[in-house]
């Protein structure tokens, strides 16, 4: 099974959606930390120079400025590479943003192995774990440009309030959804039904999970595939229902298995209907340079690893 690439880049979907939102709503403001060239927001900066704030390489200040803009009723969208808006500026997002109950969207790009040639310093396997402990925060990881567009539109236009973090690969992505697909924040999307095991994935791992499910079908294992694009609040209802239906889970994340999607699913499962869970993700390691394909194999994030884990999970059923 192969999954086609989307003709659109993730960052282009983000920029087009925010530019359209800014046309309609003067409250939409974009901030960047000397990475406009990377985030693909040049068209926005050109079109709305007065509402596009270049902050220089100063992420802590950028998030503080975003908090101040929120106090004046603006809807700030701040971007840098994921490690710099989470590891580096964590206290600013925590105190000036979340604790102060302000309204900020943060885009962290190049999550996990998609940082590729930038290597270990730029390769966040911990961003979601850091932010998952921020009370009330919403954590999103869309898997394709359709999801990016629709979620970004909601964050700009739907009168949502709070701290929202979007973890997003910037460039090519698999085409998972058709245009017009609807997404509800906090609710996972069942991409494929199955009865033996549920594969929970987000971001770049969704395509791998679909390929794994296809391979498993050939071996007589029926896998449900869920795009769990909201890591927080986690979809506890779907997790319980999936436990009842399939009785075993594999979580698939481009992130450290400690504190990430697997942890969130395991916590929810433990509180409702515990089932065997296998964790496909980065096993407590730092990043390094390499192509995405090299790193996918190095950190055991492939469809093959998911399929093997699924068979382990199924074999552990009582």
């Amino acid at each position: 099974m192969t999954i086609e690439q989307s003709p659109k880049l993730m960052r282009d979907a983000y920029c087009e959606t925010l530019t359209a939102a800014a046309e309609r709503d003067g409250r939409v403001i974009v901030l960047d930390a000397d990475l406009i060239g990377s985030s693909g927001m040049k068209p926005f900066f050109k079109k709305f120079p007065e509402r596009a704030i270049q902050c220089g390489i100063a992420e802590a200040n950028m998030l503080g400025v975003a908090a101040g803009l929120s106090l004046t009723g603006k809807i700030p969208f701040a971007h840098s590479f994921a490690p710099f808006v989470t590891r580096r500026a964590c206290d600013q997002l925590f105190v000036s943003g979340a604790y102060a109950k302000l309204n900020i969207r943060v885009l962290g790009s190049d999550p996990g192995i998609t940082a590729a040639y930038n290597g270990g310093t730029h390769m966040p396997f911990e961003d979601m774990a850091i932010l998952r402990a921020v009370p009330g925060i919403t954590l999103l990881e869309p898997c394709d440009p359709v999801a990016v567009s629709e979620l970004t539109r909601q964050l700009a236009e739907d009168n949502l309030y709070g701290i929202y973090y979007i973890r997003m690969a910037r460039k090519n992505a698999a085409a998972i959804y058709k245009n017009g697909e609807k997404f509800t924040i906090g609710k996972g999307k069942i991409l494929q039904e199955g009865t033996d095991v549920t594969l929970f994935a987000s971001g770049i791992m969704v395509a791998e999970a679909l390929i794994a499910a296809d391979a498993l079908a050939g071996e007589g294992v029926s896998a449900r595939v869920v795009d769990l694009f909201t890591w927080k609040p986690i979809d506890a209802d779907l997790i319980r229902e999936s436990a009842e239906r399939t009785g075993a889970f594999v979580t698939c994340e481009n992130h450290n298995i400690y504190g990430g999607l697997g942890s969130a699913v395991a916590e929810a499962s433990a509180q409702s209907r515990p089932v065997p869970i296998e964790f496909v993700g980065v096993n407590d390691r730092f990043g390094q340079v390499g192509t995405e394909s090299y790193l996918r194999s190095e950190y055991e994030l492939t469809a093959e690893h998911i399929a093997t884990a699924a068979k382990r999970a199924v074999s552990r059923k009582m």
Partner: peptide, 25 residues
């Protein structure tokens, strides 16, 4: 109280955001 503070060093950034936001408005 216009802004939350206490973790030192953060308030002036927020003040910059307020000043800029009001100017944009």
């Amino acid at each position: 109280v216009d802004m939350t503070a206490g973790s030192l060093g953060q308030g002036f950034s927020a003040a910059c955001g307020i000043a800029l936001g009001d100017r944009i408005s």
